[in-house]
Write a protein that binds this DNA or RNA. Structure first.
Ligand SMILES: Nc1ncnc2c1ncn2[C@@H]1O[C@H](COP(=O)(O)OP(=O)(O)OP(=O)(O)O)[C@@H](O)[C@H]1O
Length: 723
DNA sequence: ACATATGACGTTTTT
DNA sequence: CGTCATATGT
């Protein structure tokens, strides 16, 4: 066993695995065995250093990665129970801590966790309360401002005091009200889970000390995509032992839009001055063709930290670049390729089609269905955000947390039971008057105070009865499944669904699926089962989706979600300006570079075959437009690319190299000079600090008030000069 | 109160 | 193009 543990590692990996005390930073490129280091390090600590599994915490990027880690550990060390290590995403670990210890900072253990949809609904309510017109301002803008503030630990009250512009003040008010509403609903959003866990550590030194005592070793995978709060969380947990090991690759940082902050890596080296830094330099995954292409691509980025990486793997087959007429053509080219390669010995699960936006999956699904190619779609419309699932979850949440008005109001009339808008408002007002939740208001209903039609009262009484029965069932010692069944039967949800014209069968099947997932919690205490089940539901990461179970099928997946995965054959379609890089991420060099990293992550997933493609025409929002080949294709040396044009009409496409001057002509703006005050629709106001000529264009460096320094291209950025 | 029609609006990426 | 929230009719 010991041999297995240490022989399958190279010298640097060995160093990282056996360096068993003090802080450790592993920075290394793709396929260099970072994940392997984590697995073996944990195995080493357990089997050679007598560390108990439950003294080790490993933070992974997805829940699936956690499960795989445990599986691999169990394979490596038979006699220890690796499933006892503490492992999960930051969010799921924090949530568990709050359920256990949250009461010491005033968080009841039955809090609800709000997902994006719930959050939007709360933002809407907040807007209404502070009289912000949601038609003028999109609620999701506020949501991203709030999330950004939270992941930088900006307090809403402080925030309100320091904001000056009109919009900032508006946003600050919405933020404050949003917090109040979450509190009323006894709910936490994703950012709260991390934030409150940190507060818990600060406010309850005893809790923290206890955790620090128990957790002897902390490991964090994909460290390049952690945000400020997550890093703080990890730092706090580490305590004096400083046995913290973080592993990452700055070149694979692709979640800055979710507030991930690369500075964490730099700060780590400052915060842990004595940290050991290990760099891995060999790629074990890809052919040298693929690796060389990836290195050429990423070398275009500035301010890189990761060292270059090399491989002793064979050259492999050439990377192909296919030009398609439109997205359907593109899908059939790829389908044909899959069929052909399968005859050469690949099986369906060896293939992944990796794209920039979920909408791209459609053409592939259609082509695959037509050709009988089995596939699994990762992510897209997630199981748990389907309407029918969310309805049932809402019922469960009401049982879990009767203060969850948002869930209560979601299903108060689902299925329709005669409780209309007027009745709901009356009930809501009554609840407000008594400073009570809607659920309590209903359960303790005094109908004489409500001046509504008697039919309304009757409907409310009816629903009161329903709720009471469900509550009674939840208080019995029956399983979660029987609670679910009770909800389904007493509300008549099945009939409600089957009444619908479209997709009703599928909807009911989904409920069946939910029921069987709930069944997995039947052997836990019913009381805890509900919390555990709802936590899992709220914190699922894409690949836990039940629809992605099937093996022996081609994977359809966004580039973001391919992080950490590998496939023998990878297709990257849609290499067009506006798609990759995406049009919404072309406003600054930073954004373009992150898009480039995304492409880089995609390329480096491939083990042996890589197929790139783009379509000359693509239909977006129903309109078909001529496209331009992605600038990133030009970053890959020609000698590594085999250009394949299967088209019947073979026109000279070669003239479309480089970003064409589509914008340049009309946009020769009144020249922007250093010192000018400018406004950008996204980054806000700022001052031009530098202008640098760039082949017929200008790079403009702007110091934005809120967003800091950005490098913009004058032809692309919509800069307004302010007087 | 509820079902259907209409129009605005939007898509990166997700814990 | 499709979804969703709001407006309209029954
Ligand atoms: N020392 C080694 N000898 C042989 N194969 C190795 C070694 N280390 C890792 N590998 C293999 O290389 C591949 C990539 O390893 P791993 O997933 O750990 O890399 P990674 O650095 O986490 O990659 P990425 O950052 O791209 O997700 C895996 O298939 C792994 O089994």
């Amino acid at each position: 066993m010991k041999s297995d543990l240490l022989t399958k590692l190279n010298k640097q990996q060995l160093l990282a695995v056996t360096n068993d005390s003090g802080p450790l930073l592993v920075i290394a490129g793709p396929g260099s065995g970072k994940t392997r280091v984590i697995v073996h390090r944990v195995a080493f600590l357990i089997s050679e250093k007598q560390v108990k599994p439950d003294e080790i915490m490993v933070v992974t990027f997805t829940n699936k990665a956690s499960r795989e880690l445990k599986d691999r550990l169990n394979g490596l060390l038979g006699q220890y129970d690796a499933s006892r290590i503490i492992s999960g995403t930051f969010h799921s670990i924090a949530s568990k801590m709050l359920r256990i210890n949250g009461d010491s900072i005033g968080i009841a253990n039955n809090f609800s966790i709000y997902d994006r949809e719930d959050q939007i609904s709360i933002v809407r309510q907040a807007c209404e309360l502070v009289e912000v017109d949601t038609k003028r301002y999109n609620p999701s803008i506020f949501l991203s401002i709030i999330s950004n503030a939270k992941s930088k630990m900006i307090d809403p009250i402080l925030n309100q005091a320091t904001s000056d512009s009109l919009f900032d003040k508006l946003a600050a008010n919405v933020y404050l009200e949003y917090e109040k509403l979450l509190h009323d609903n006894q709910a936490l959003d994703f950012d709260d889970l991390l934030l409150r866990a940190c507060t818990l550590f600060e406010k309850s030194p005893l809790v923290l000390a206890d955790l620090q005592n128990r957790i002897k070793y902390l490991l964090v995978d994909e460290f390049q995509d952690t945000n400020f709060v997550q890093y703080k969380f990890a730092k706090q947990l580490t305590g004096d032992s400083q046995n913290i090991c973080v592993v990452g690759d700055p070149d694979q940082s692709i979640y800055s839009w979710r507030n991930a902050d690369l500075r964490n890596i730099l700060n780590f080296q400052k915060d842990f001055k004595n940290c050991t830094v290990v760099k891995l330099v060999e790629n074990y995954r890809s052919t040298s063709n693929i690796l060389n292409a990836s290195q050429a691509l990423i070398s275009q980025n500035s301010n890189r930290i990761t060292n270059d990486i090399e491989t002793y793997n064979p050259e492999g087959t050439p990377i192909e670049l296919h030009v398609a007429e439109n997205e359907y053509d593109e899908a059939s080219i790829i389908t044909e390729k899959i069929k052909k390669l399968r005859l050469e010995g690949f099986s369906y699960e060896n293939f992944a089609v990796t794209y920039r936006v979920n909408a791209q999956s459609r053409a592939f699904e259609e082509a695959f269905v037509r050709n009988g190619v089995p596939y699994k779609l990762i992510g897209a419309l997630k199981f748990y955000q389907r309407r029918e699932i969310k309805d049932i979850i809402a019922y469960l949440r009401i049982i879990q947390n009767s203060n969850d008005d948002n869930s209560m109001l979601r299903v108060i009339n689902v299925p329709p039971r005669g409780i209309g808008e007027r009745t709901v408002t009356a009930l809501k007002n009554l609840a407000n008057l008594n400073g009570d939740s809607v659920c309590h208001a209903l359960l303790n209903l005094d109908e004489t105070v409500l001046n509504i039609h008697k039919n309304g009262i009757k409907s409310l009484k009816n629903f009161q009865g329903i709720l009471n029965e469900v509550i009674e069932e939840s208080l019995s010692d029956h399983s979660l499944t029987s609670l679910l069944d009770k909800i389904l039967s007493i509300t008549g949800y099945r009939e409600h669904i089957l009444r619908e014209l479209e997709g009703s069968e599928e909807r009911w099947e989904n409920i069946g699926e939910l029921r069987s997932i709930a069944g997995q919690f039947d052997d836990i205490q019913p009381n805890e089962a509900l919390n555990a089940f709802l936590d899992q539901v709220a914190l699922v990461t894409a690949e836990d989706d039940p629809s992605s179970d099937s093996n022996e099928s081609v994977t359809l997946i966004t580039l973001h979600q391919t992080k950490g995965l590998e496939f023998p054959v990878v297709f990257i379609p849609g290499l067009e300006e506006g798609l990759l890089p995406h049009s919404r991420s072309m406003d600054s060099f930073d954004e373009i570079e992150e898009e480039r990293r995304l492409f880089y992550v995609g390329i480096t997933r491939a083990i042996s075959n890589l197929y790139l493609s783009w379509s000359k025409y693509r239909t977006i929002f129903g309109t078909t437009t001529r496209t331009i080949r992605s600038q990133f294709v030009d970053n890959i040396p020609e000698n590594l690319l085999k250009i394949v044009n299967t088209n019947k009409f073979q026109l000279e496409e070669r003239s479309f190299t480089k970003t064409t001057n589509l914008f340049d002509q009309q946009n020769l703006l009144p020249t922007i000079n250093e010192g000018d005050k400018v406004e950008h629709f996204k980054f806000g106001k700022g001052v031009v600090v530098q202008t640098i000529p760039r082949s017929g264009d200008f790079e403009i460096v702007v110091a934005f008030k809120v967003n800091g320094i950005k490098h913009l291209l004058s032809s692309v950025a919509k800069l307004k000069v302010l007087e």
